[in-house]
Design a binder for these strands. Structure first.
Lengths: 352, 352
DNA sequence: CTGAAAGCGCTTACAG
DNA sequence: CTGAAAGCGCTTACAG
């Protein structure tokens, strides 16, 4: 009782510290702290009666185990990291919220790690990030999720991860495939059903998996409906507004010009709007436009932009849930992610 | 040596664990671990020679103290929280990056806590957030930063905080004032200098400090230049795209109608664009528009939107630096944050 | 300026 | 099913 000042005061510890320690609960329950520990960790090796008594006490006192003490003993923190190199702020924020939704009430917290995958020491940065705080696991967001070298490092470091990518790249328990291809297929079918035959495609850099998936899905679906895109109708942009303008100017200079353009993200679709307006073309009267991402921009453009939406929040929630799941919980059903087209005002049948 | 398996292997511990423990360093240096601890914590009570030897060893081995062990002993984690209830994703992401920039190399990490300030138990949520992991401190982003009840709770919980708000609400060491008013003044002067006299203002909800500051700054600056805004030229929006459309429709129905409109955020400015186009008015030929926030939207609208930019990244960096600063480091110069107008294509002198 | 002891709040072997 | 001992990797008193 001389060792710990708290012992000298009262059995009920200060509320501010979150409800005492494991020792307080053990003393109150008249058991060893090891037994309390078993209850905390859901060990089956506790008598039902004992367990219930301890659980009631824990609730009553408002006791919450200290994550740092647990982490020290476990050699693993109660932190989940999110690693990303993604210019789409809304994407990041939505995914954070989704992950947090799965983590609520678990005692885990989310720590963020934006990085620059073009710098050659970013992997070392992630390594220190996961190792220093002994992260429980990390969520890998596109496009870093596509980097095999990063994943190799994580495996070697013994850090769990959940990858989010356009198509499965890993074992199911570590992977959330977003099936970007399906969204592009939907766009192809939509434009074709409106009657468009001369269609332009503005892609992103081919090194991105999402670009290849979206592009391939779009072209294949068109082909299935008997539409072939001539090479000059396919231009590679850089996922930026400016590149969207430049690519659209090239496409719209064609004669005859496309009656519809699909851009592989919304940024570039906004660029298409600008190019069209500069040329005196009206969207959608003279040109239909579809984007991808359904970013906040889409609904705010005038006319509002039809775009493909991914359930980003859900993806974040699934990823966190995967990381939190017991290693030995058996095979869990892989979540099926399906993008879908949100049709707005930017498309209509071609004129004439 | 039977106790710790690592002792049995080699003096140089596995690189994967980040470079051994304090005991390894102590043994290698031939000192007690307390002395190593003093070096880690920059205590002056270490002989220069001893210190240098230990520091060299730490670098060589790549030793990094375990934040969980330190946190347990300190009763305080190496985590900084960011608490926000802000619909502007770019704002959040930029601020996160700024905070992280200040934290780089310190061993601290950033843990995020979005919340809903309209729910009545959000303060309890933040309380558990800061208490459970014993956060080192939290960054309070507008608009939760304006909530006195939240700050009271944090004070009572003994959690450090840094508040970011339009105007100082707290002691300088806990406050980053963004001086929103100055940005609005700049807009007023700009529009006046272009020759506008009939000017409309679309505000946000008056309960927000930023709204009041921006609105007051704008009107006062106009008044100083001899322009009074009649009441019907001032309408209250809700910071949403839709409210921008509705407010603009009211303003543009006036006869004579305003030649310029200032909206207190970019979302509503986009709404003004839509309303103008629907009425067949051209921006900027028939109507000049200025927004606030300089969100990604601003540069992507057509014509691109003039808007007030806040140095959000720097604000995040300052906030984190404040939290990391030694309590007894003395009074540090309060950073001066100054918003400024980014003039783009949406304004020109009024016609006629 | 330096160190041995005790402690932070939890868990992992190891016994029973 | 339960517990006493030792340990996770660090720090705070307290001595010297």
């Amino acid at each position: 009782m001389t060792r710990r000042s708290r012992d000298a005061s009262s059995a009920k510890p200060a509320a501010i510290s979150g409800g005492g320690t494991i020792n307080d609960i053990a003393r109150l329950a008249g058991v060893s702290k090891k037994t309390v520990s078993r209850v905390i960790n859901r060990s089956p090796l506790v008598q039902q009666e004992t367990r219930e008594k301890i659980e009631a006490l824990i609730r009553e006192v408002g006791y919450v185990p200290d994550p740092m003490a647990r982490g020290l003993a476990f050699r693993k923190s109660f932190l989940i990291g999110m690693v990303y190199d993604n210019p789409n702020a809304q994407y990041i924020v939505n995914m954070q919220e989704g992950a947090l939704a799965s983590m609520r009430g678990t005692g885990f917290e989310l720590v963020v790690h934006p990085c620059d995958s073009k710098s050659d020491d970013y992997i070392e940065g992630v390594r220190q990030f996961v190792l220093q705080h002994r992260l429980h696991g990390v969520i890998l967001v596109p496009r870093v999720s596509e980097d095999g070298a990063l994943v190799d490092m994580l495996r070697q470091a013994g850090c769990r991860y959940a990858r989010i990518a356009a198509v499965s790249l890993d074992e199911p328990a570590r992977m959330i495939a977003t099936n970007d291809r399906l969204g592009a297929v939907e766009v192809a079918n939509y434009l074709e059903s409106l009657g468009h035959r001369r269609i332009g495609l503005i892609t992103g850099p081919q090194r991105y998996l999402s670009t290849r998936e979206r592009g391939a899905g779009f072209m294949q679906a068109l082909a299935r409906r008997g539409i072939e895109l001539p090479p000059e109708h396919i231009v590679e942009g850089g996922y930026t507004f400016e590149s969207g303008v430049a690519c659209a100017e090239r496409l719209l200079a064609l004669d005859p010009r496309p009656t519809a353009i699909f851009t592989l993200n919304d940024e570039m679709a906004a660029g298409v709007y600008k190019a069209a307006f500069k040329m005196g073309l009206s969207v959608p009267d003279d040109l239909s436009v579809v984007g991808f991402d359904d970013s906040p921009l889409a609904a705010r453009l005038w006319p509002s932009l039809s775009s493909v939406r991914l359930p980003i929040r859900d993806m974040g929630a699934f990823a966190a849930a995967m990381l939190l799941a017991d290693e030995d919980a058996g095979t869990r059903a892989a979540p099926v992610i399906a993008p879908h087209l949100v049709a707005r005002e930017s498309c209509q049948p071609p004129r004439g």
